[in-house]
């Protein structure tokens, strides 16, 4: 089953974004083994070179650790995990605010709506 990619954003960046998301939600736990480049390419339906590039970049960003002849792992460093969470949250907030600005609602109203939505979400999940 292949992941649906946006054709206007570099694929390798989308792969990294996918990993960041999973790291932030702990779907990928710190220290967890990740698939080889080859396996990842097959799983996501991408060019193995792209997988290679994504892993290289993630290694540079210290999201993953690689050693010879051993499967790569998610970083154990909690600070980095926290940083990612924080980044994703910020990005979501920035996007949200951009779309909300057009409506011109005051902050308390916006916060109220957010709290309501969270409460409802909780009910749905219950």
């Amino acid at each position: 089953m292949s992941y649906e990619f946006d054709q206007r954003i570099p694929v390798y960046l989308q792969v990294i974004a996918l990993f960041k998301q999973r790291i932030a939600t702990r779907e990928l736990a710190p220290g967890q083994e990740i698939p080889s480049r080859r396996e990842l390419a097959a799983q996501l339906g991408i060019n193995p070179n792209t997988a290679q590039r994504a892993y290289k970049e993630m290694e540079e960003q210290q999201l993953i650790t690689t050693e010879r002849n051993v499967p790569s792992r998610i970083t154990m460093d909690e600070r980095i995990v926290e940083k990612i969470r924080s980044e994703l949250l910020e990005a979501a907030v920035t996007e949200f605010i951009q779309s909300v600005q057009a409506i011109g609602a005051p902050l308390p109203e916006v916060v109220g709506k957010i709290e309501q939505a969270y409460a409802n979400r909780g009910k749905q999940h219950a």
Partner: peptide
């Protein structure tokens, strides 16, 4: 067919 371009046979 597209799968083959994601496989080990591409390497």
């Amino acid at each position: 067919i597209a799968w083959i371009f994601t496989s080990e046979f591409m390497e």
